[in-house]
């Protein structure tokens, strides 16, 4: 939002503006086409006809990080890939969000103990907004993760000054 971002006090007008901007953001999250491992197949299933991520406005999978808002890290990240993940994340425009999908992206998963090349969680290189558990998570779980992310976006302060205690705002299951 450039010049206007986080400049204003809370009042009726700025709250409404924020509400509008957040609503626009959360209803058109564009994820990046970024499949890593087994979880990517479930991510594809979410894009498929039965689960249909389009219902949540997040069905426009973009092939380039420059057009994407959301990176779903679907699968195991190892050290060789980790550098690329970081670079892709850096290329995404703000505001950007990350969902760590599956046990591997969350914390190494089944490869925690003996996987010498596996990064024990993608949060070691990029900040993660929502963790989705499972190996692989069911498509419903990913959809829930997406809804949690939308809740988080709903509380963001875009033109208002955030209170110190409110950063970062943690979503809760409400």
């Amino acid at each position: 939002m450039g010049a206007l971002s986080q400049k204003f006090e809370d009042n009726v007008l700025t709250t409404k503006v924020d509400w509008l901007l957040n609503w626009a953001r959360l209803s058109s999250i564009w994820p990046m086409t970024f499949g890593l491992a087994c979880c990517a197949i479930e991510m594809m299933a979410v894009g498929g006809p039965r689960f249909d991520i389009d219902r949540f406005g997040a069905g426009a999978f973009r092939a380039t990080p420059r057009q994407a808002d959301l990176m779903i890290v679907a699968g195991t990240v190892n050290f060789k890939m980790g550098e690329r993940v970081k670079r892709l994340y850096d290329q995404m425009p703000n505001p950007k969000y990350v969902i760590a999908m599956g046990a591997c992206a969350t914390g190494g998963g089944p490869y925690y103990k003996f996987g010498y090349t596996v990064m024990k969680g993608v949060d070691r290189i990029v900040p993660v907004d929502v963790y989705v558990a499972g190996c692989p998570p069911r498509p419903e779980a990913l959809l829930e993760g997406l809804m949690l992310l939308q809740q988080k976006i709903r509380r963001q302060k875009v033109v208002r000054v955030p209170k110190v205690a409110e950063i970062p705002s943690t979503p809760s299951i409400a």
Binding site: F79, E83, F114, Y116, T117, M119, K120, R124, I125
Partner: peptide
Amino acid sequence: PLRKDYKFPEEYHGISCV
């Protein structure tokens, strides 16, 4: 890595492995 006397690395490029 597949030698039996292989020691798992502690860190790689500053990212800890454990």
